[in-house]
């Protein structure tokens, strides 16, 4: 079943300068999809369209069988959560507890249930001991975990990670990726937006975006194999595949090396 359908979606900030052109994309329930693209490819715009922060100039977006429009925007937002890039600029509450509560307060969840959910989801992202801490005493990775808890508490079935790991240190990044895997295993539909090939390998399917157009939609393995597309979209190749390419050019890659390097690059 398709949880998100985008039909002929186009968007432009200024006339005749389309940021996204004729996007057709179906996302299955429980899928992990990566939207891969270089800076300015329109990938962040795509996420803003999905959550109704921007309105498409053309086409329609259907989320959980609800056609996104001015009237249904709040309903759609109950189904989609988004973690943004900058950990500091999405922390609304004065403390961790307040921040997780923010979305729940907006959804008018009764207080008793709110307290329960805060406890539960703070535990889930291992932030339970930090509930009374203020954001300036937390690391970037911890703040992103709070953001995830805030969305989980709202019990959305789709989570968008809009370059959520790009401002984190390697340790924080690894941890967030772990949570993505875990959530996906629990049935949450995950959309990651990134320019990092390493992250995209984890997902089921990859959408390669360039200049507002979809270049390719395929499984991670197939996209990695398609060097032509990757080159066209200015994306950095994974290191093992780069090595493989040099070896192949020099004609010294045997079958064993080839399969080993592929294994290395597809390691989840």
């Amino acid at each position: 079943m398709d949880i998100i359908q985008m039909k002929n979606v186009s968007f432009e900030y200024q006339q005749d300068q389309p940021v996204l052109e004729n996007i057709n994309l179906n996302i299955k329930k429980g899928e992990w999809l990566t939207i891969l693209g270089h800076n300015g490819s329109g990938k962040s715009t795509l996420s803003k369209l999905l959550i109704g922060l921007l309105k498409p100039n053309q086409g329609e977006i259907i989320v959980d069988n609800i056609l996104l429009s001015r009237e249904t925007i709040q309903d759609v937002r109950k189904h989609i959560g988004i973690v943004f890039q900058n950990p500091d600029n999405q922390f609304v509450g004065v403390t961790v507890r307040d921040d997780i509560a923010f979305g729940l307060e907006n959804l008018q969840v009764p207080r008793n249930e709110m307290v329960e959910r805060i406890e539960k989801y703070a535990h889930k992202v291992n932030m339970a001991e930090f509930l009374n801490k203020e954001p300036h005493n937390l690391s970037g990775g911890q703040k992103q975990r709070v953001a995830i808890a805030g969305i989980l508490a709202m019990q959305t079935d789709i989570i968008i990670f809009d370059e959520a790991t790009s401002m984190l240190d390697p340790k924080g990044r690894k941890m967030i990726l772990e949570y993505m895997k875990q959530l996906n295993a629990e049935g949450v539909t995950i959309i990651t937006i990134t320019h990092d090939m390493k992250e995209s390998v984890l997902s089921d399917r990859i959408v390669v975006l360039k200049n507002g157009k979809i270049l390719k939609i395929d499984t991670a393995t197939n996209v990695l194999k398609d060097q032509e597309t990757l080159e066209k979209s200015n994306l950095e190749m994974l290191l093992p595949l780069k090595v493989l390419r040099y070896l192949e050019r020099e004609n010294i890659a045997d079958e064993k090396v080839r399969s080993y390097l592929w294994q290395l690059s597809l390691k989840r």
């Binding site: 959550i51 922060l53 709040q74 937002r77 109950k78 989609i80 959560g81 988004i82 943004f84 600029n89 999405q90 609304v92 507890r97 307040d98 509560a101 923010f102 979305g103 729940l104 307060e105 907006n106 959804l107 008018q108 969840v109 009764p110 207080r111 709110m114 307290v115 805060i118 805030g150 969305i151 709202m154």
Partner: peptide
């Protein structure tokens, strides 16, 4: 970020 988390200015909210 606030809008994405269903904040509507002036709407009724429950309070923690």
């Amino acid at each position: 970020a606030m809008e994405a988390r269903c904040f509507v200015p002036g709407a009724t909210r429950t309070r923690l």
